[in-house]
Amino acid sequence: MTAALVSLTFRALLNRRRTLLLAALGGLLVLVAGIFRLGDPSTAEATRFTGRLAADFGLAVLLPLVTVIVGTAAVGSELDDGTIVYLLARPLPRWLIVLVKLAVTWLVATLLVAVPILIGGLVGTAGDSEIGIGYAVAAALGALEYAAVFLALSLVTSRALVVGLAYVVVWEGVVAGLFAGTRIVSVRQHALAVGDAIVGEGAVSAELALSVALLIGGAVVVLATALAIRRLTMVELRGETG
């Protein structure tokens, strides 16, 4: 039962044209790193540029963009087009549906974000793996937190994509930049803290301690998942004609 649910979720996410576009964005990151490499930069230059590329583009743009699109679609698109009925009419515990959707979303987002960051890091620094691995791990952990939040969001509102993008742009992009205190509830800052802790001399110094980031991030994942399970348990299907 679980395997069928996993395969159905994968196919639904990977068959969307958007997912291909997102993969192209990941390719862009690798391409930029490669073009930079062609200029034969010094080691310090390469480390700085590649680190900025991974943090400012990979973690700050690619990661939220991919997770908001994939995360809100995992359940949200099925609620929209009515195919959710084919899952709800099966003897599947609702928590299992949510956990599988979350796991698949996480995996897809990791493939689309962490892998390009890893490859871009290796290409940009000519084989120095620290930046690539550091920010790839950060992206993978960030992907889990974002995925949990956006999955829950898609079960709370039918405009999850808009609300999710607003969170990313307004809260993480503007508010967290102006008010340092709000960074504690910014997924991007959690991911940056992880990347910074691994890379050491990070290109972008993180504002949060690793322990705080992991603790808050972990709590967000647990709470968002619990909310998503609760919401899916309460989902009602209304007819179109009554």
């Binding site: 395997a3 069928a4 395969s7 195919t83």
Partner: peptide
């Protein structure tokens, strides 16, 4: 067994895949 009125289907599946997925989801 439930047949919804709504014209909902997975556009990426053949009928055989759809029915088989349903069988697997029902264990």
């Amino acid at each position: 067994g439930f047949v919804p009125e709504r014209e909902a289907f997975y556009p990426f599946l053949t009928a055989r895949q759809f029915v088989e997925a349903s069988a697997r989801l029902s264990g």
